[in-house]
Write a protein that binds this DNA or RNA. Structure first.
Lengths: 339, 339
DNA sequence: ATAAGAAATGTAAGCGCTTGCACTATCCTG
DNA sequence: CAGGATAGTGCAAGCGCTTACATTTCTTAT
């Protein structure tokens, strides 16, 4: 591996100048800079991450904490983070949390404490109080996406408002018997998003003067299959069949779509379905949804962490939570209730 | 941050002994080791990754190169890699390749050359010759999953055999008019897997004495939607409708399932469908498939890279390609052709 | 009992960078 | 045109570890 000394010799300057020329810190004349860059290029020199980190305390590396890697939402957010950080020359190290208590602990007590990263982004992680504390102890900028955590800088969509928007869309189409597919209680324990969505749903109904019927709520597990089963329950009930279903995720909404189809209901003529997320499959299934732009969420989180890094020396950290955008995308799965 | 000196002082030994006790290299008496570990624990000491890397040349970090983060197959493999590496105390840094030529180049010429990783795993990446060369120049162990590359140690499933297996399953059920959904030509250019699967398909037909009809081949893009469209083409052709479809991926197979349903064909009574992958949705759709255990592929790759790391000093690198397992999973989407 | 090897520990020299400080040359500003 | 600010560069001291080598102590075989 070629080292900074060789570049310095080749360019006829000191290593200090090479460092400054290549990193852009401190003053270097244009001509010297050009010479150094040329030397680096011909020699194929790339600064050693560990030597640079050790000397400077900066790693050019961001840790990303994810609860699941193989779920569409998380991998999409991660993808957004990755592309935004790469553009700025940052590396990403992945911390994938498991359900295993010990491994989870090790993540916070060991992995994150190796001084490998300049900051961390936590995706939709419902962190326990001790875990939040461990994160804060790292003394690094932390940006959390989703699951508002008052002790962390958080980028979050207003889940209550998102759910209201979806529900109000159905109400505006004349629906009154609206069912909701949310999360099972165990899920709720350490994951508040489903609860917020349910609240938004119920608020919208209440505002419209409609009673919330417990029979029109069905829990599921945020998968297509779960949504399918929940919808079958809801649609199979004799008498009070809903004319619309609001699912707390697009995957569950797609499950509901498939269930309706299997039971012989036409969508949207016999049943309207709306989801939340902006899932890639939504377009194919012509699903009306409230898009929360997960790719964009990742990019914003990346920008936010880089901003925090730059501001670190200068401004004090600001904990104002960032509000993320969302938008109702009307496709073919919702229609006016035939009168 | 607490440093090794504090631990040394606290345990009443030199820093050298602390280093040896904590890393397990060199001899340390049991009692000293216990004392050092206790001191480290009370002080909350975790070795600094950059200092350790700089001094030792080892990073305890593996680079993972992926073409897409947000496709099920890749994120699943990644998930397998992550859990296996974490168990061994390794970190993962993610190198997500984009289509952008310059960014892709930067990945190989800059990001990977920062000496941040001890080895790299490349997932199903069809690398150009120069890219392969850059990887080799890193002088690090490299394990590639899929897309056999003679210049790299590769873990690969025998795609031809997998496709044969799927096709032979249909043949054994009495099908003769079997269609194949593969990849569009542009896709094929730098991605050989679809080609191999097509070869396996055609070999199986040939072995059974059946002509390969070009009209029974339809290209798609490996998505559900693509499979849907391709199946509509295949099934819409007057006269020669196939009685079975073999899709080169589960996602396309699911698309075919949905297309069949929409056209009023019953699966498996009127049409059998088989895919490849072992996609999580396969169970829900009762899809017969050849599972290639992507989670396991990730774990194996992780094991392989760690083995290579350990063998680095001792044995010379062995380039024998690893064969990955696969298995036909028969579910409800295939049935005997009614006679 | 004793030589020879192994075990246990310490000393100190780096690993390859960054950056504070020192110095000189150049630029303003009044 | 003096005097302070700023630009451009080099020197050298670390950053926090690991490990070769040296030293001392303990085994074990003869």
């Amino acid at each position: 591996m070629v080292s900074i000394d060789e570049v310095a010799r080749h360019a006829g300057v000191s290593t200090a100048t090479v460092s400054r020329a290549l990193s852009g810190r401190g003053h270097v004349s244009d001509s010297t800079k050009a010479r150094v860059e040329a030397a680096a290029k011909t020699l194929g020199y790339v600064v050693s991450a560990s030597a640079s980190s050790l000397a400077s305390g900066r790693t050019r590396n961001i840790g990303v904490l994810v609860p699941f890697l193989d779920r569409w939402f998380f991998s999409t957010v991660l993808s957004g983070i990755a592309s935004a950080l790469m553009r700025r020359g940052y590396d990403i190290t992945l911390y994938s949390l498991t359900a295993n208590r010990d491994e989870r602990l090790a993540m916070f007590e060991t992995f994150l404490r190796r001084q490998r990263v300049d900051g961390v982004i936590a995706i939709s992680l419902e962190l326990g109080p001790e875990e939040t504390e461990r994160l804060r102890e790292l003394d690094l900028p932390v940006i959390a996406i989703g699951g508002p955590n008052p002790r962390l800088t958080t980028l979050t969509v207003d889940d209550v408002a998102v759910a209201r928007l979806a529900t109000e869309h159905l109400l505006a189409l004349g629906h009154r018997a609206i069912a909701h597919i949310g999360a099972s209680p165990e899920f709720d324990i350490d994951f508040h998003i489903p609860t917020h969505r349910r609240q938004g749903f119920e608020q919208a109904l209440a505002d419209a003067g409609i009673d919330v019927k417990p029979s029109l709520y069905e829990p599921a597990d945020f998968t297509i299959e779960g949504g399918f089963r929940a919808a079958k329950q809801l649609l199979g009930k004799p008498g009070g069949r809903p004319t619309a279903i609001f699912a707390a995720s697009d995957e569950m909404a797609i499950g509901a779509l498939l269930a309706a189809r299997e039971l012989g209901y036409r969508v949207p003529e016999d049943l309207s379905v709306v989801g939340i997320d902006g899932h890639e499959l939504g377009e194919f299934f012509r699903l009306t949804t409230v898009d929360q732009f997960p790719l964009g969420q990742g990019e914003r989180a990346a920008d936010a962490i880089l901003a925090a890094l730059e501001a670190k020396d200068a401004a004090p950290p600001q904990h104002q939570p960032g509000e993320l955008p969302y938008e109702l995308i009307v496709r073919g799965s919702t229609a006016r209730l035939p009168s």
